[in-house]
Design a binder for these strands. Structure first.
Length: 583
DNA sequence: GCCGTTTTCGGCCCGACTGTTTTCAGTCG
């Protein structure tokens, strides 16, 4: 069982306990444990197997440790099963709707017998919700809107969650001598922010044993289909995985074909047809005169590697992240494919938190983490006071923090700590910190955390006002979306990007796997407009610094090169950009 | 249920907003 799955089970226990009206601190204990597990950098099942003491992890005590062990050993949790006997499990879906919390979910169930989203939708349509005490017409309408949103986004997995599920499966497949090579294709390989299912390719001389090995993976819940060259399983997490077993000669063609996107492949195949060729998952073939339309009729031209496939239609290899038919084939033809950003280009991280607000580790620990990643600099961006729940800092707190920064960095010349703060943008667009304190920061990062439901015009004006403040450098997580959890707030992003360009403000690509904000298409827009991008992890503990990878991947999907990203620059150049405000 | 200790109990990041009310519960971040 992967960390993301263990975390999910404990989070579900937390929600059910909350609906049941349990001690709120007990509820939070499960929630905290879930977060610890989700964020833990190594699989907990390894710790369990090694007999490690799990209670050394934060928020994991004796009970949680035994829950984790039970889940790893049996895949089940007694506490959860007992709860499910008292409360319908499907009430969890209700709690996830905006405007519905545990209390209202319980009321809906007890007074109207509603257990599922479907039943809730029907009741709302029949105007039965507004009759309940504590509910009204607006809440009823909000519920209907929420259900529609949930339906629309379906059940895709966040990319980082898919990573956790796919990597051990790949290790399993590679562990048999029958397999020569294994690769993942599909949207996973294109690093799309969410994936619906996983397509795996394996090269083997004999497909039979490989397929048997695949379907015997311990985390398989159900084998949907298992043929000679193709099999489909559903993992216990609900993730569907397809495996195709191929001979080495077809590997490149199959990898290209199954990586997609569909639009990219259609265009590529058209190009092949124009050259008297045909591209299929089996290879590139010459189309014999009078034999158009036959998939594998003619002589095989290539197919063993992807490079060969592209070369057969006179193109250089195109990075998977670009294969969305957004002009990459044309650029490849002209020889103007971007020299995409890589993780090695990153010289610093410009958003992270410490114990001075809601981070889990000290300034000294975060600094050490950045040194370990080989960074030249980093910005410490704790929250400002408006976010009381995070222990946000006021002017006095900021000055106390500076004293500690001076101590921690004294005598260090291996890395530079940039003094910063993630300052809340208040309702009217003003900033949650006095100007004289802001003036002493090296990097001024601003963001919206409250009042997410303002009308679009008002929200836009609020953000524009903040960007017009003469000291602001970076707008953090500009849309506020949380993948699969919360839509972007309503505002005019285009107006914000134009304003950013005009006022020498960069936009953030927040690399936290739950955010990835700005997303790929918005970053493309920023690139077109010439608005610089900053990629930051929003780390709340040292392991989170590794989220940088997810930011770089999305940046690549947006065609970004090192020159588009401020924190690829050496410190001196970054400082020059920061100092150029108001010129 | 976890944690730290003034160590086996007692506290646990809390303030603002919304829609419902007519003084506030529920939700949110």
């Amino acid at each position: 069982m992967e960390n993301t799955e263990i975390a999910r089970v404990l989070a579900d226990v937390s929600t059910l306990l909350e609906i049941q009206g349990a001690n709120p601190f007990r509820v939070r204990a499960y929630e905290n444990a879930a977060r610890t597990i989700e964020e833990h950098p190594t699989p907990l099942r390894d710790l369990v197997a090694a007999g490690a003491d799990l209670t050394e992890l934060p928020s994991i005590g004796k009970d949680m440790a035994s829950h984790i062990r039970e889940l790893v050993d049996t895949g089940r949790l007694t506490v959860l099963e007992e709860l499910q006997r008292a409360i319908p499990y499907s009430l969890i879906d209700l709690v996830r709707l905006p405007g519905v919390g545990p209390k209202r979910a319980r009321k809906l169930w007890e007074q109207l017998g509603i257990e599922t989203l479907d039943q809730l939708e029907t009741a709302a349509q029949e105007a039965r919700i507004e009759t309940l005490e504590g509910f009204g017409k607006k809440t009823q309408a909000r519920i209907l809107g929420g259900i529609a949103t949930v339906r629309q986004r379906g059940s895709r997995f966040r990319l980082a969650d898919a990573d956790q599920l796919v990597e051990p499966l790949l290790a399993h497949l590679r562990a048999t001598a029958d397999v020569q090579q294994v690769a993942v294709a599909g949207s996973y390989r294109r690093r799309l922010e969410t994936v619906g299912d996983i397509d795996i390719l394996a090269i083997a001389a004999q497909p039979g044993p490989v397929m048997a090995h695949f379907t015997s993976y311990p985390r398989v819940r159900k084998v949907e289909m298992s043929g000679d060259t193709r099999g489909t399983v559903i993992l216990e997490s609900g993730l569907q995985v397809d495996l195709r077993v191929l001979p080495a000669a077809s590997y490149g063609a199959a990898l290209q074909y199954f990586t997609g996107s569909k639009a990219h492949n259609v265009k590529l195949r058209k190009r092949a047809v124009a050259r008297g060729l045909s591209i299929s998952e089996y290879g590139v073939f010459e189309v014999a005169e009078g034999d158009e339309g036959a998939a594998t009729g003619g002589r095989r031209v290539s197919g063993a590697t992807e490079e060969d496939v592209y070369a057969a239609v006179n193109l250089p290899w195109i990075p998977p992240e670009l294969r969305e038919d957004r002009g990459e084939i044309e650029a490849a033809e002209r020889g103007t494919l971007p020299a995409l950003l890589t993780l090695d280009d990153m010289r610093g991280d410009l958003q992270m938190h410490s114990t001075w607000s809601d981070g889990k580790q000290s300034i000294a620990e975060m600094l050490q983490g950045c040194v370990a990643r080989g960074y030249e600099y980093f910005a410490l961006t704790d929250h400002s006071k408006n976010l009381a729940m995070t222990g946000g800092l006021d002017a006095a707190g900021v000055r106390r923090q500076w004293a500690e920064i001076a101590e921690v960095t004294a005598g260090r010349d291996d890395i530079t700590l940039l003094r910063s703060l993630e300052i809340d943008i208040l309702r009217d667009g003003s900033l949650d910190l006095e100007d004289e304190v802001i003036a002493e920061l090296d990097v001024v990062v601003v963001s919206v955390h409250t009042l997410l439901d303002l009308p679009a015009a008002q929200q836009t004006k609020r953000i524009l006002t903040a960007l017009e403040h003469p000291a602001v450098h970076v707008l953090a997580h500009p849309t506020g979306r949380l993948i699969n959890r919360r839509e972007p707030y309503a505002f005019d992003l285009d107006a914000v990007l134009h304003c950013a360009r005009e006022h020498h403000v960069a936009v953030e690509l927040n690399a936290h796997p739950h955010r990835l904000d700005l997303r790929d298409i918005h970053l493309l827009a920023a690139r077109e407009l010439g608005v610089p991008v900053v990629i930051s992890t929003d780390a709340h503990q040292v392991p989170d610094l590794a989220f940088m990878r997810y930011g770089v991947e999305q940046a690549r999907r947006a065609w970004l090169e090192p020159a588009h990203v401020l924190n690829t620059r050496p410190l001196s150049e970054l400082r020059r950009w920061l100092a150029a405000k108001g010129i």
